[in-house]
Each structure stands twice: as structure tokens, then as C-alpha cells.
Amino acid sequence: MDHFTNPRNVGDMADADGIGTEGNPTCGDAMKIYIKVRDGRIVDAKFKTFGCGAAIAVSSIVTEMVKGKTLDEALAISKEAVAAELGGLPPQKMHCSNLGADALKKAIEDYRSKQK
């Protein structure tokens, strides 16, 4: 609840190294995650989210969890891990944590594709 009422890392990132967008407003949830990468580690993350309380809380916790992690460690973050970090999510809200993990994955893929 705290991550919903006081979300961390809200905002855009002009000089992001990777951006991942997942979801669609017509479905009720859409997430945009920005990451900054130095020496293979995520040093900063920000997000913008359109969605319910759980979606916002998930975005907040995911951007907190990835900071300091290597890209591979960040990719290994599962929706269960996200939900657990929030102290659990009701079953009908589990797709929100999925959305967070997927948006993060896309941001990392975006970063890697730019490195090639």
C-alpha cells in the first residue's frame, strides 16, 4: 500500500539507456520503465504507469528492486518475487506483477539491442 500511496521513482528519464513499455490503456494497465546502465549494472530506474493501485505499486517496487543489479540478475526477477516484495498480491492482481516483470524485460532488451 505504501508503494501505491508513496510510489518511488516516478518520472521520465531523458537520457535512459533502455525503455520498456508493456500493456495497453484499453485493458486498464500500461507501464513504461526506464533504466540507466553502467558497467552491466542498472544504476537507476524510473517509471510511468497508467493503472490500478497494484500496477502502480508493482512499478514502484520493480524500479527499487533492480537498482544495483546486473542485467542478468534483473532479468531473473519473477512476478512472484515482485508480489512477494510487496507482501503479496490478491490472485486477480497477479497479472499486474507480471506486467512489471515484462516491462523491465523489454527495457533490458531495448538496452541490449542498442549495444549491438
Binding site: 510510489p7 516516478v10 513499455t21 495497453n24 490503456p25 484499453t26 485493458c27 486498464g28 500500461a30 507501464m31 513504461k32 510511468k48 504507469t49 497508467f50 502502480i56 497477479m94 497479472h95 507480471n98 506486467l99 515484462d102
Partner: peptide, 24 residues
């Protein structure tokens, strides 16, 4: 709206068209 990525408009997302599937 400060948190929303669409506060400046729906952009190309408004038309939808994508299936709304809830992933398990």
C-alpha cells in the same frame, strides 16, 4: 496524472486493437 505515461495524450495507444489478455 503525474504518474501516468499518457498525461500528455493517448498517443498511438488510444486505438487499442490489442487483445486484452490477462497473463497468468
Amino acid at each position: 496524472r503525474e504518474i501516468s505515461p499518457y498525461a500528455q495524450g493517448w498517443g498511438d495507444r488510444e486505438g487499442g486493437g490489442e487483445e486484452c489478455t490477462v497473463k497468468e
